[in-house]
């Protein structure tokens, strides 16, 4: 009976501590989805792959989204012609490298402030590395689902104007839409097409607020349910599994990292609240393994694989998964082996 009470108190405390951060996360991601125009942002970002990867992985500071919000944003970035390094860097780092997650991790690991810096540092390192690897692939289209790839520009260095004014350019092939202002070529990049069309109907502030609230509710409903499952698993593991087993697993420098990475992958808890989940294991597991949980979980987990597959083909998701897993494992093992932290 005491164990049941202990488990329930643990479960409720995780929920009560995590709910404010979850709300903050869904509020920001909804605001951004409705209010921010990524096209303007892309225009200001560097084209060099390494710089694009770095700026992409820091984009999260502007778009504080968790790993459910980042896939739609990364998809919009790709469709609007962002360099692949920027989109991949954003995809992997944004759920961790953002002010809300920074704050939540700080709150959870007040005893070990170094955790926050390790977490952010390793995430940026891994994201930039993977983004650079992906940038070698100049044409991203074979990696993307056909529905998305259609919108992507051809990396061929002969750009064509969207609006065809003179007669000679009519010689180029493709689908065209005849408009009063000129001819619009339909198979152009989304950005160019959208830029050329007349402005979209302006929404009133009331409509926008309504849309933000609607989206917040939608995300809260779903992520709240995932949070409930995650908290239940954390509480059960702590209470029901014998301490000796967990200690045996959690004190080995390699087994602890593998166990926490597997847990991160299965539990799929939202990155704004995962530090509270990890906190409940921090007295039993090595610091490196807690770090592995906090770095790997937001990049790839069971939940966002289904989201990633809406944008990327299976092969590309596999590459992302394998690279992220290997880098996390090697780097956190180094933390376990070479630092006294």
């Amino acid at each position: 009976m005491s164990q049941l009470n202990q488990g329930l108190t643990l479960f409720l405390s995780l929920l009560v501590e995590a709910t404010p951060f979850l709300l903050l996360g869904v509020a920001f991601s909804s605001l951004l989805a409705v209010l921010v125009d990524e096209r303007k942002l892309i225009a200001y970002t560097p084209k060099n792959p390494v710089l694009a990867a770095i700026s992409g992985s820091l984009f999260g500071c502007l778009f504080p989204v968790c790993e459910c919000g980042n896939v739609p944003v990364a998809r919009r970035l790709l469709m609007q012609g962002a360099p692949s390094a920027l989109a991949i860097g954003f995809l992997l780092a944004a759920p961790t490298v953002n002010p809300i997650v920074f704050w939540a991790t700080w709150v959870a690991f007040r005893d070990q402030p170094a955790m926050v810096f390790w977490r952010v540092g390793l995430t940026i390192l891994i994201s930039v590395t993977i983004a650079c690897v992906f940038s070698v692939q100049k044409d991203m289209r074979p990696f993307l689902q056909p529905a998305i790839a259609r919108y992507l520009p051809n990396p061929d260095p002969k750009p064509e104007p969207a609006l065809v004014g003179s007669g000679s350019s009519l010689l180029s092939g493709g689908d065209f839409l005849l408009q009063s202002t000129g001819t619009l070529k339909l198979d152009q990049p989304m950005m160019a097409t959208l830029g050329a069309t007349t402005a979209l109907p302006q929404q009133s502030w009331h409509d926008k607020a309504q849309a933000v609230l609607e989206m917040m509710l939608q995300e809260f409903r779903e992520l709240g349910a995932v949070l409930v499952f995650g908290s239940a698993i954390a509480a059960t593991v702590q209470v029901a599994i014998p301490r000796e087993w967990i200690l045996a697993l959690g004190q080995g420098p390699i087994t602890s990292i593998l166990a926490m990475m597997l847990l991160a992958w299965v539990v799929s808890i939202c990155s704004t609240v995962d530090s509270f989940f990890a906190l409940s294991f921090s007295s039993l597991f090595t610091s490196g393994s807690i770090l592995a949980f906090l770095v790997f979980g937001p990049m790839i987990d069971l939940k966002n694989i289904s989201l990633l597959l809406t944008t990327f083909k299976g092969r590309a998701v596999m590459y992302l998964f394998v690279l992220a897993a290997q880098l996390t494992f090697v780097l956190t093992l180094a933390v376990n082996s070479y630092t006294s932290w």
Binding site: A33, P72, R76, E222, A225, L307
Partner: peptide, 17 residues
């Protein structure tokens, strides 16, 4: 707003909450 991909059926999430 469209960009949302449902993970759990809406009724399930609601019932859990």
């Amino acid at each position: 707003p469209g960009a949302h991909i449902a993970l759990l059926p809406r009724q399930w999430s609601l019932m859990v909450l």
